[in-house]
Design a protein around this nucleic acid. Structure first.
Lengths: 257, 257
DNA sequence: GTCGGATGTTCCCCTCTCCCGAACGAATTA
DNA sequence: TAATTCGTTCGGGAGAGGGGAACATCCGAC
């Protein structure tokens, strides 16, 4: 199937798909054996077995007790991924500083596959607890990070993403259609920051500022907090200043290769 | 081929191998295109292309400018991996505490594929700089972590690992054969901690203590420092106490499922 | 001790995948 | 506008890989 929105061919390799089905299953539930995996995925034991052998040889998975789990090599890969995306150290420092300053949740995210992926998350003293975590993906249209990034991506890329977006009403405030979204993107690029007013999680508001370089946008920085603390005043005055400053510092300190 | 040391069949899946060759190449050098990858790996462009499409659909990789890189989903996977291995929070706390106390490098490692993999690393105030990093793999026989783990693994597992080990003389002090290694393992299990006396890196000594539960060994904790500070006295007196205490705390706080 | 059930492993065969080569499009440069 | 590059698509033929069944191994139960 390969939902190729533009009708591209999208030829995909079956055995690789199977391999990643196995990996994803192992990600969710550790220490599974051949039989259980075979049942779960609807393949024969022999098939799963040779896949597991391949993955073990590649040191992606490891036997642990009876069953397999993902190996620590994933951590090594993760470290490389972090290094490949902009200047991770600066992002880390600034997001931490932002969280410390405001006491709230501060995050850095960027666009991948038409969604926001979180690269770093810091929690301040008074921060609320949320499910979001590093590596996680969220919709563009319901988050301050996503909308802010959309507002600054090249127009054709923004259109591509919006065109392939299925809008879901997550809260009562969620943007539910392209027109409404484009209006808001307009607003964001005018004032320079984006806002999520309980559009993704009931009771939570966010403010985000873009991190750009000469030609493109790298991602965005945001802070998240309860609506009680993110009042109408603060959300259009004090808070945008915080995130914009953090974004600027990251911009300045990011060296491009 | 699949070097199966015991002569097991080891049937392995070609297309999955290709997929991981691509992933590993992307890990080392980001932002590569189809043609370059095809050349590098010795495959046709069309082959590489369909692999890239598969990996992109699975959100393992992502287009970035012209070329691909690994996606942030790897970070999400990494988070799950950390959670699957014992009690990560406790390990983190204790290793950090150990580094702070001693001012040196403190690490937690465990055995995977007959090697030591680092799960966590903390650097103290005076810590030397080393190349080791989270997720990285090192030989068992040349590290304090590895030897300590070997000393406490089930004998048959230890034998299996040693049997499949090719000893390389890394420094002048490196253990170069099974007999010598088994002698040292004996010593370690008698005194309760392991030592690396410049066997892996010239000028560096380490001390490690095992982290065990009722039936098996989870991994080991170590501290690393220059031989000038890790004197003969300290390395057999003060330093073992530090690591052993940290190991014990982890043992006590690790809940088993 | 022995049986039954569950597991992981191996083998062989047949089909369908997937790798290649070549042609095509698109984009950039001269 | 031609020429070179890149990514993409297509069809075919070889061989890979998925399935099934038999084997091996380990367990607990009786």
């Amino acid at each position: 199937m390969t939902l190729t929105p533009d009708g591209r061919s999208g030829r995909t390799i079956r055995s690789v798909q199977i391999a990643f089905n196995i990996i994803e299953t192992l990600q969710e539930r550790d220490r599974i054996g051949v039989t259980e995996l075979a049942d779960e995925l609807g393949h024969s034991k022999s098939t799963v077995h040779s896949h597991l052998q391949t993955l073990e040889e590649r040191k992606i998975i490891v036997r642990d007790g009876d069953g397999y789990r993902l190996s620590l090599r994933i951590l090594d890969m993760a470290a490389d991924v972090r290094d490949q995306v902009g200047n991770y150290d600066v992002i880390q420092d600034e997001v931490e500083a932002l969280a410390a300053e405001t006491g709230e949740i501060a995050q850095f995210g960027l666009e991948e596959h038409g969604q926001v992926s979180y690269l770093y998350k810091a929690t301040g003293e008074r921060a609320v607890v949320t499910a979001s975590q590093v590596g996680m993906q969220q919709p563009m249209y319901s988050t301050s990070l996503g909308k802010t990034i959309l507002a600054y991506l090249p127009p054709e890329r923004t259109e591509e993403i919006v065109r392939n977006t299925e809008f879901e009403q997550i809260t009562s405030q969620t943007i539910t259609g392209p027109e409404e979204l484009y209006d808001e993107l307009e607003e964001i690029s005018e004032r320079g920051y984006g806002i999520d007013d309980e559009e993704n999680i009931e009771g939570l508001r966010c403010v985000a500022a873009p991190v750009r370089n000469e030609e493109t946008i790298l991602g965005a920085v945001s802070i998240t907090g309860p609506s009680s603390r993110f009042t109408d005043d603060r959300i259009h005055d004090e808070l945008p200043e915080y995130v914009t400053r953090a974004a600027n510092v990251i911009e300045l300190n990011t060296k491009f290769s």
